[in-house]
Write a protein that binds this DNA or RNA. Sequence first.
DNA 1: CGTCAAGAAAGTGTCGACACTATTGCGTTC
DNA 2: GAACGCAATAGTGTCGACACTTTCTTGACG
Lengths: 252, 252
Amino acid sequence: MNEQSETIAMSESPAEGETRRSADSSERAYNTIRKLLVEFKLKPEERINEVQLSRSLGVSRTPIREALNRLASEGFVSLTPNRGFFVRSLSTEGLLDLYELRTIIECAAFRLMCQRAEDDQLERLRAYWTAIVEGYQDHPPDVILAEDEGFHLLIAELSGNPELVHQLSSINARIRFIRRIQIEHRTHDKAQVSSHSAIVEAAMNRDIERGVELLRNHIEMTVSATQQALKDALLKVFAPGDASSKTRRRRA
Amino acid sequence: MNEQSETIAMSESPAEGETRRSADSSERAYNTIRKLLVEFKLKPEERINEVQLSRSLGVSRTPIREALNRLASEGFVSLTPNRGFFVRSLSTEGLLDLYELRTIIECAAFRLMCQRAEDDQLERLRAYWTAIVEGYQDHPPDVILAEDEGFHLLIAELSGNPELVHQLSSINARIRFIRRIQIEHRTHDKAQVSSHSAIVEAAMNRDIERGVELLRNHIEMTVSATQQALKDALLKVFAPGDASSKTRRRRA
DNA sequence: CGTCAAGAAAGTGTCGACACTATTGCGTTC
DNA sequence: GAACGCAATAGTGTCGACACTTTCTTGACG
């Protein structure tokens, strides 16, 4: 085994400034482990060793298990009764299933938004997009990803159905790792920009059919690119140890 | 030394297959607590006392907390950082959101099934329905509920997308309590039977548009009845006094 | 040599205990 | 008499320990 004794810094969302006292180990463990999964630090099909993890994160097994249980409910890992948690592999086909689900949710959200949202709410969508469209392509991948997710999440919010927001959030989390890789490939930024603009326009006109069609294409467009990205990702993960290539860590 | 006196009998719900099953405490706690929630033994907005629960179920707090974490991910309860778990209220509006999500998922599943399923798979659907349609209306509510859920889940399975199955299972679990009450009201059994038959027929013809329309109506039809049922349920739960003896089984 | 079994090691599932936070009840002050 | 703070209580978050299960190692037997 390698050097496991090192404490992996737990990343924390920058939100609260008040209560850092308790600092909720479970919550941090959840975020950290999810990050490990997303970044393939924990490899597909691999068995997760709770003791090792708890040592790495510097907490006891209890918060680790709580985090893993949550991650299991969300589909990141699976739990086999007396054998422990396993990293759920994201096969190509599993990924396609997820994208399909995403398409379903997003199209439905768009439809409901067109039917229900007030004009000024649609205006908010337009404002959101115009605000970020300027430097869009110059932003670092992480930012682009967040902005893109934000755009689609806003549509879900404007649908008026919180369940859709929740579902979409969960889906996003699960495919985020591959989207990031795909964005780094920079295959079709421009197409994406115009897609979003067109979607906004369809929304302003409350043109459901056009919007749905755009969304469907928009997402489908990424799928093919994604498949290639997935291959690259897996290659990178399982590639024997050179690691000479410049990984995408820019001052975490 | 694990001879525990079970204050509240932990029951094994035969419901639907999530992913992991086993006979350990966490699993049983999960099922039991979920049942308590479903039957309104734990009332909406109520704070859940872990110690009390653990004493009732005859296990320590650890499995209780694991179960609650899972239930939180699935939307049954909510978790406020240093204050504990709370029963998530299912307001009328929250319920409608869930039904809306269900409609979205089911219609999409039907569409995909029509596009992808082999003929013999569609035949399975028909067989499933004809096998239970005979005594349908004479079955006890729980059986009817299970059969109905099975029917819709089968459609999800035949869609070929496991994510849809998972989503639908989760939704079903959350609205099961109200569906049971509604079924006990016996408002529109016949309509439901013919609905299902019509859906099967549309499936055999691979008539997507008709099937989607049928499903939409089928589910929407139950919503109005459901709203009334929800009122009854809440009344029953919060009604003072008499509820003591026959809270549970209320056949016919 | 390969198979298998028994024991050792590793790992999960659950427990009771303790630290720290939130809430409740009480007494003081104005 | 009411608002405020302070002490006491209740409850959650986390820990280390231990029982039980699975997996690995080793050595006897065919």
